[in-house]
Design a protein around this nucleic acid. Structure first.
Lengths: 178, 178
DNA sequence: CACTGCATGTAATTTGTTACATGATTCA
DNA sequence: TGAATCATGTAACAAATTACATGCAGTG
């Protein structure tokens, strides 16, 4: 069961910021990269084993970081290599829009409910990102400006979703009372 | 090889708007739903066979629509059922943001290039959606308002991407000349 | 000492993509 | 009559999720 470059990139990248155990890695990917990335549980350990076998990461046996996986020189090179590869976009699959497209069959009220739900989700996402952004601003790290870039992307996207939802709810209301 | 509800929904939904051959279906999903949905080639025929076996679609043998797949009564019920199911969101996997997050390793200029690329893509997407929106506005169909909803979502998202890209490029420039 | 969280892994299953294979029809 | 497009499918492969299984360490 070979692993793909995508998962490798996330794992190597996370370890480039800090040595971690597999468990902590999973947690970091969920909480830190969670806004734009995800790895399923069963991916991480096999990927780590593979990377270790190829000499890209090493499990520290001693010292303060005992038990954690560390990026090797070769691993750092491999990461740079992977990052330089062209971005592969995943084919879009938006279940919400698919349902709205067939809104005539689904019914207007159900559509409204879906949109309201999407609006609430976006609102919550935005609040969370605002919180995280402020938190990141307080720490000092060479990665900070890049992290803020990704957070900003999430905020723009959330605000767009909210604006769209409001507009769409109004448009649906106009359908009922022409 | 059982098929999932997601693909079924897209296929039944497309056929609810117009009877089509499998080939046309693939084309319609690519061009009409393409902004927010995709089905790989090898999914459509097996799904159609499955739906036919269950009596949700029928291949018209005669008449003007000979050779096309048509939604049956049961199929229409099944579609309503599927549309009513809760939206399952796919786990996020944004290769662009993953790379930017590790921007320190990737390098500033490479980051800029990625963002410029993303901006161009969004710009092209927006122009295309504007075109499609105007096109849809001209025809008269009961589906029109719902279709416009999905197009509007794409436009909001594209505009957000452009604004984010501009902001981010400026932020990266400020890093170089503090 | 029971419970919670840390830590590591495997197996089964689902899902989806790519590439291949085939034949009919249309059009230049 | 050759090339392109329409049309239908299958097989091999790749990727990812879920659920299962296990053990240790700290703590109330």
């Amino acid at each position: 069961v070979a692993r793909t470059g995508q998962t490798e990139m996330a794992v190597l990248g996370a370890l480039s910021i800090q040595p971690m155990t597999g468990y902590a890695l999973r947690d970091a990917i969920r909480t830190v990269l969670g806004h734009f990335w995800s790895e399923s549980f069963g991916q991480i350990y096999p990927t780590l084993s593979g990377l270790a076998r190829q000499g890209f990461v090493a499990k520290a046996a001693t010292g303060a970081h005992a038990g954690t996986f560390t990026l090797t020189k070769a691993g750092r090179r491999r990461l740079a290599e992977l990052l330089a590869e062209p971005v592969q976009t995943t084919p879009p699959r938006n279940g919400l829009l698919l349902r709205l497209f067939f809104g005539r069959t689904l019914g207007r009220e159900a559509c409204r409910e879906l949109i309201r739900q999407a609006r609430d989700d976006a609102q919550a996402r935005l609040a969370e990102l605002d919180r995280v952004s402020a938190e990141v601003d307080d720490e000092t790290s060479a990665d900070k400006p890049f992290i803020q870039l990704t957070i900003s992307a999430g905020r723009h996207s959330a605000r767009a979703a909210i604006a769209w939802a409001d507009e769409s709810l109004a448009a649906l209301d106009r359908l009922d009372t022409p």
